[in-house]
Simulated scan of single mutants.
Amino acid sequence: MSHTAHIRSHRKPRRSASTLAVRAGVAGGVLSTLAVAGASGSANAAEPVTQTLELPTLTADLAAQAAQSADATEQAAANYQLQAERDAAAAKAAKKAEADLAEAKKKAAEAKKKAEEEARREAAARASRTAERTTLSASAGTGTVLGGSGTGSDADAGTSTSTSTSTATGSAATIVNFVRAQVGKAYVPGATGPSAYDCSGLVQTAFRQINVSLPRVSQDQSTAGTQVSLSNLQPGDILYWGSAGSAYHVGVYVGGGMFVGAQNSSTGVVERPLSYDPPTGAVRVL
């Protein structure tokens, strides 16, 4: 026996080969299991990571698409609203243009009517001047005096002015005497005496002598009384030229087929036969 046999050896006891093999196998199996588990765990762990990375990308795309769709819808609505506003403005403009056209046509018609009336007045004035020149020329050859104070005679009248004076009485005589006293005075548009008159100014002033107030213009004077026939005239009746309510000239019938009127600036206030310038109608105020 060795002298050291009683001393415990510091070496670990040897293990048998079979024990080592079993342990190695177990260890290898454990390691394989761990490796498989690790690989499986790695695979399983990788999949959520992949899904986690992809989901935000898909969500962002969907959000972008939704935002684009909302923008497109909003833009379409804005376009529709703008088109509606344009259509409304166009309809309003068309309506206003139609109203303006109607107003323009109305004004054009009024202007045309006024121009025609002025043309008729001018034509009547020219005809009056022409007839007067013709009458004066004829009178110069016969020595007849026209437009006097009632003491002479008129070749066209067929009666003397003194005869027509004798038919007027009362207020009518006052009017007749007044207008005859104005014969020879000037014609001035807008004048009402005492040195000049226009046609309606002479008539208005004549009736004022008997305290009868007449309208100022010929249009109104032509409807101031009762309409009478030209075949049934009496001294003091108002004669008018044109239509009732739109007459362009007036005068006073003094009897015997004669009238006194402020004709125009060339003749002034004159006494003439009805045939000189036949009136359209007459009204009776007295």
Rank of each mutant, 00 (worst) to 15 (best):
S160V: 07
G201Y: 02
G193I: 02
G193Y: 00
S149K: 13
G141Y: 11
I175P: 03
A123W: 03
A131G: 12
G201T: 03
Q182I: 00
T159Y: 13
S195N: 14
T205Q: 04
A196G: 02
S166G: 11
Y187M: 00
A181H: 10
V176R: 01
R133L: 13
S162I: 11
S137M: 11
A125V: 11
T205L: 02
S166Q: 10
R121G: 14
T167V: 12
T169G: 11
T174L: 03
T142W: 09
T205I: 01
T144L: 09
E132N: 14
L202P: 01
S195C: 03
T169N: 12
R180W: 11
T205D: 06
A155R: 10
S139G: 15
S200N: 02
G147Y: 08
G193V: 06
T174R: 10
T169D: 14
R121K: 14
P189G: 09
V179Q: 00
R180V: 08
T165H: 08
R180A: 03
S160E: 08
E122L: 08
P194T: 09
T169Q: 08
S166V: 06
L136G: 02
E132I: 10
G201W: 01
A125R: 14
T174N: 11
A127H: 09
R126H: 14
S160I: 04
G143K: 09
A125D: 13
T159F: 08
A123V: 05
P194W: 02
G150Q: 04
A138K: 13
A125G: 08
G143T: 08
T205P: 03
G143V: 06
G170E: 04
G193F: 01
F178C: 02
V145G: 07
A131V: 09
V179L: 02
G147I: 06
S128I: 11
L136V: 12
A124D: 12
S128W: 12
G193L: 00
S153Q: 09
V183A: 05
R121A: 13
A181V: 00
E122N: 13
G158Q: 03
T192E: 09
S137C: 02
S195W: 03
V188P: 10
T151E: 13
A123L: 05
S149Y: 11
R120D: 14
G158I: 06
R126S: 13
V179W: 04
A124N: 14
S149F: 10
G147N: 14
R126I: 07
V179M: 03
A168F: 07
A186R: 00
S164V: 07
Y187A: 00
G170L: 01
T151Y: 10
Q204A: 02
